[in-house]
Design a binder for these strands. Sequence first.
DNA 1: TCTGGGGTCCTAGGACCC
DNA 2: TCTGGGGTCCTAGGACCC
Length: 425
Amino acid sequence: MYALVDGNNFYASCERVFNPALRDKAIVVLSNNDGIIIARSNEAKTLGIKMGTPTFEIKDLIARNEVLAFSSNFALYGDMSKRMMRIFKDFTPDIEVYSIDEAFLDFAGFKQIDLKQTGIDLRQKVLKYIGIPVSVGFGPTKTLAKIANRIAKKYMKNGVALIDTSEKIERALKMTPIDEVWGIGRRYTSFLQKYQVQTAWDFTRLPNQFIRKHMSVNGLRTKQELLGIACIPITYNPEPRKAIRTARTFAQTKSGFDEVAEAVSTFAATCAHKLREQQHAANLITVFIRTNKFDKKNPYYANSFTLQINATSSSIDLIKAAKKALQIIFKKDLNYKKAGVMVSGLIPESNRQLSLFDDQNFAKHKRLMQTLDQLNSRSGLSVVKFAAEGTFPLLQAVKKHPVSSKTICWYNAKLYQSYVYIAKK
DNA sequence: TCTGGGGTCCTAGGACCC
DNA sequence: TCTGGGGTCCTAGGACCC
């Protein structure tokens, strides 16, 4: 049996941990630039606030109902997540961390124990030590554990549900709308509804060839999983990432090349840093830019370019390559709303092939990057950056999260002092 | 005026090889 | 007029997840 354990309204619950006065209040957490809703407390859900709604669309609703809105704080959520996962491990060492707020727990070989009680204990322990309410769903496959988790969250007072017999499987499938099934998204839902498939149970009545034809092998796997035949293995040690991406929507559009290049350089440096953390090097770098896709008055422009590079995790190399790629796709006189950098073709740093000429540079860069990472990790801030990344956005970021005017002055002065311009030569 | 960010996998079709 | 067979690799696009 597998358990899927998942934090209820995770980001919203995290905010509550640090401010208990928010309990029983309608609260929401907002995305970057406070653009859309990315988490809601139950009270906010009751008000009809939907996931992904643009904040401006429900400004009045928020004001009318005194909903409290928070800018997201992913450093905090990531830390809470780690602590939560550690508690899960007290119950079984075999866990797959599936996302920031959920994990699959493998209870194979735990036949004698009372799973339901285990779920209740787990929930209580997380609540006590972390302060986050979780739901626990047990099932013989990951897909059924997901379904059990939904039932636990929706219908069970103790937050625990167990699907362990074929009768319970049938009952659970019949009460699960097709769009709530793991692996069935918006597109497949509307496709399946044309064939009168409304519930997970209806889906399992479809012939295999039909599913295979229209939904590939994944659809077939989902059907098997729903019937209690495990096809999606649990993975305790996640594979390293195959691609790393950093992208942002700009609060204000940017149109000058230098402005966009600064942003792209920052993304490239962030990708480089993530690569080093993972001890990988990239063979490919993709830069993309786009104008506002919601702006119907002006023509939409979106483009990307991928460059092949000598496997590297050096910020210097990646910034240089990113600028080169940007030059190819950048068009003048447009208002860019979003840009990003993706590195892929990742290989372990140790497997990196030295090209004929770059080993000297490589050694130099490596020392420099180590120093850079040390300085930044010690301070917890990007105090040392490349001139190419620009100097303005950082100061802006500080101003965006004012603590007090005194603090800002101190902070700004500190940052100015800490600027180290690493010139190319 | 204001609309997020970061990932994975599968398939079809084209380029290329012998 | 007639135009092979078998394979790999890469890419774009489409689906999905949180």
